[in-house]
């Protein structure tokens, strides 16, 4: 593998994704979970940019990346609304307490 800006960025994408998923699995605070999701999304945005840069379709990938940022911000906002509402209704941000639905 040639060491180039793209490969370094690719490693960042992998590292961030792994870290993000690990964080999703071990974090208990709901708001922090949302942050972990944001980390993965950022990795995806970087990945799209790399893909476009890699084969000269930068315009396309820029458009796509911007859309992703906007859409996932909306998702994060809705998720935060959920977290706030859950905190209001149940008095906790602990994801472990959200386990009434099972079986």
């Amino acid at each position: 593998m040639i060491i180039s800006p793209l490969t370094i960025s690719l490693l960042v994408v992998c590292g961030l994704t792994g870290l993000g998923f690990y964080g999703l699995l071990v974090t208990r605070n709901m708001i922090k979970l949302i942050m972990m999701l944001q980390i993965i999304v950022k990795a995806a945005v970087l990945g799209i940019v790399i893909a476009g840069q890699g084969n000269g379709q930068l315009n396309l990938s820029q458009n796509v990346a911007i859309t992703i940022i906007v859409v996932d911000t909306i998702v994060a906002v809705v998720a935060l609304a959920f977290a706030i509402q859950i905190r209001r209704q149940m008095g906790t941000l602990d994801i472990r307490e959200l386990a009434s639905l099972r079986g």
């Binding site: 699995l25 386990a99 639905l101 099972r102």
Partner: peptide, 17 residues
């Protein structure tokens, strides 16, 4: 089989991974 439905979000995510 129903035991696999733990109700814990993070076990669900383990399912995803």
């Amino acid at each position: 089989a129903t035991l696999t439905q733990t109700g814990q979000l993070q076990w669900n995510l383990v399912g995803l991974i």
